[in-house]
Amino acid sequence: MEIKIQKKVLQVNETEAEKSRKFFRQKNVFVLNMMSSPGSGKTETLCKTLTKLMPGVRVGVIVGDICTTNDADRLVKTGARVTQINTDQFGGDCHLSASLVLDSAEKLGCDDLDLLIVENIGNLVCPAEFDIGEDSRAVVLSVTEGEDKPLKYPLMFRVADVAILNKIDLLPYLDVDRDLAVGNMQKVHPRMPVFEMSAKTEEGYEPWLDWLKLKVFEKTGKGL
């Protein structure tokens, strides 16, 4: 006997993501899902981004990690409102699910925010698969990871709307071809904007900030 089902296995997450999207629309806040491998410099990129955006743009951050509150401790110093999710309490998940993000966003409070940034768990595979109700997805790749990572993890670079090539201050010390790294990202995702920057020296920040501010403004009418 055959039973027809025809259902998406991740439907539960997708339903939750739709709920989150509705919540974020009601609160009129733009949500950015930031993803990368561990150690690409997401947190430092964010710290500098927050410092430069605030107070013109009011930013809140949800940080996901399997363990520790190290990232939240660093981010909170910028003056932004920050909440940490540790997935070890939920089985050490390798990604943030839509329901976890919505719970945290409700706890954080979004009434007085223009931009909510979700720093996802450092991982180039799983977070790409899970919609969290975001408006845009950013992927950070650092030059120390090698030029071929976009080709090795194509889904992540396919689902991203924008990419940051980070740590360009290290290029003089590395045998890395910067143009090849950018080219590989655009092979996987033609026309994706790629911002080449250094979170440490703050080189190349303006185009990234302009892109982000414009996105926030397009959705919320705020922040410019």
Partner: peptide, 29 residues
């Protein structure tokens, strides 16, 4: 492979039609 560039216009705006499905279709009892 991992290359999504349009072989004709190279710089085209490429969208996915299939390849990301995770679906349960049916059971046989």
């Amino acid at each position: 492979g991992p290359v999504f560039q349009c072989p004709f216009c190279e710089d085209g705006d490429v969208e996915m039609i299939s390849g990301r499905e995770i679906e349960i279709i049916s059971l046989e009892l």
